Amino acid sequence: MKLYAISDLHIGVPGNREALAALPYYPEDWLIVAGDVGETIEQLYYTLDILTERFAKVIWVPGNHDLWTVPSPKEPQFKGERRYQHLVNICRNYGVVTPEDPYPIWPGEGKRTVLAPLFVLYDYSFRPDNVSAEEAVAWAEETQVVCADEFLLHPTPYASRSAWCEARCDYTEMRLNAVAPTDELILINHFPLRRECVRVNTIPRFSIWCGTTRTEGWLRHYPVSIAIYGHVHVRATDFLDGVRFEEVSLGYQRNWRQEKGIQGYLREILPGPQRPLTPGAVMWYK
């Protein structure tokens, strides 16, 4: 029995959609889907139809693309929190675990391990000290970088995405406080939980849309052994301060080798990598 993870399936890309349909069956294994299935409700249905047949259990967290409100006569025009809750209800109808459900316990051998799917956004805090939060978007725009979230990811009913992020952090901390310190904890989020994991070297100012510094303290305060994320489309395993960080994205067709199939990009989380990592080491995946 294994626990796998993948993110950023981007099923709106035809090659990704076809590759998902060809995914083999893993009837004894669990799968984490760490956000960005696609941009439409139809794409979520398509993906869950396949994955819930292929795996024993599926755990889902939303990505920013999933939360977009895309103008379309065929797409429900739900915004912000209402759209998120609509996605949660769809997942629950498939028996998929969401950030609103009790945290599942990994049934494998060894220490009791809690899997915590999270929905935590960003608050523009992944920025230089000399740039204020109010100036952050304009600072990024100076290099012709503006995330589509600014137009498509609505924070309704919150005043801003930062306010929504703060509310989600408050909610998440309340739930994580209930995890026993003797457990091992695996955190699952679409956005990176530590700034060092934001590898956007070609568009460095995109970092402001990649997470919040508030989550960095969780990695020290709670008994976290593994942190799983996607979003940046740079696949890697890092071992930092006793925590294994797994960026598990597939990405657009230019980001992965189609001959490997999606199965070639399923990251084994448990039992874990066959090659042990030393502190500070990085394992890259092409």
Score class of each variant (00 low, 15 high):
276 P>F: 12
68 W>K: 00
91 C>Y: 07
228 I>Q: 06
50 I>H: 11
16 N>A: 04
13 V>C: 13
86 H>I: 01
282 V>T: 15
117 P>H: 09
258 Q>W: 11
150 E>F: 07
172 T>I: 04
153 L>R: 11
225 S>I: 12
65 H>M: 04
213 T>C: 12
107 P>T: 09
171 Y>F: 15
44 L>M: 14
39 E>V: 14
197 C>V: 02
191 F>E: 07
256 W>S: 00
222 Y>G: 03
21 A>G: 08
256 W>V: 03
176 L>D: 11
140 A>H: 05
30 W>D: 04
197 C>K: 05
181 P>N: 13
248 V>D: 01
37 V>F: 03
175 R>K: 15
34 A>V: 02
118 L>N: 07
86 H>A: 12
100 E>A: 14
259 E>L: 03
231 H>D: 07
145 V>T: 14
112 R>A: 10
225 S>V: 15
87 L>N: 04
124 Y>S: 03
60 W>E: 05
170 D>S: 11
43 Q>I: 01
176 L>G: 10
267 R>D: 00
23 L>Y: 04
235 R>P: 02
211 G>F: 01
167 A>R: 12
183 D>G: 07
257 R>P: 00
132 S>K: 09
81 E>G: 02
63 G>L: 01
40 T>F: 13
55 F>H: 07
143 T>D: 15
266 L>H: 00
36 D>P: 01
101 D>A: 12
112 R>L: 10
43 Q>N: 13
60 W>Y: 15
26 Y>E: 01
78 F>S: 08
30 W>N: 01
156 T>N: 12
47 T>W: 04
138 A>L: 09
165 C>I: 06
102 P>A: 12
100 E>G: 08
222 Y>P: 02
194 R>T: 10
254 R>G: 10
232 V>H: 02
130 N>T: 12
64 N>A: 01
41 I>G: 02
188 I>D: 00
50 I>E: 05
7 S>E: 08
182 T>V: 12
286 K>N: 14
180 A>G: 06
119 F>G: 00
267 R>V: 05
40 T>M: 09
52 T>S: 11
164 W>R: 02
139 W>L: 03
276 P>A: 12
199 R>I: 14
262 I>W: 01
94 Y>V: 08
36 D>W: 00
216 E>G: 11
36 D>A: 03
244 R>D: 06
168 R>P: 00
3 L>T: 05
120 V>C: 12
265 Y>H: 05
220 R>M: 07
269 I>C: 04
80 G>E: 02
238 D>F: 13
157 P>V: 10
17 R>D: 05
126 F>K: 06
30 W>I: 02
95 G>Y: 06
180 A>L: 13
171 Y>Q: 14
135 E>K: 09
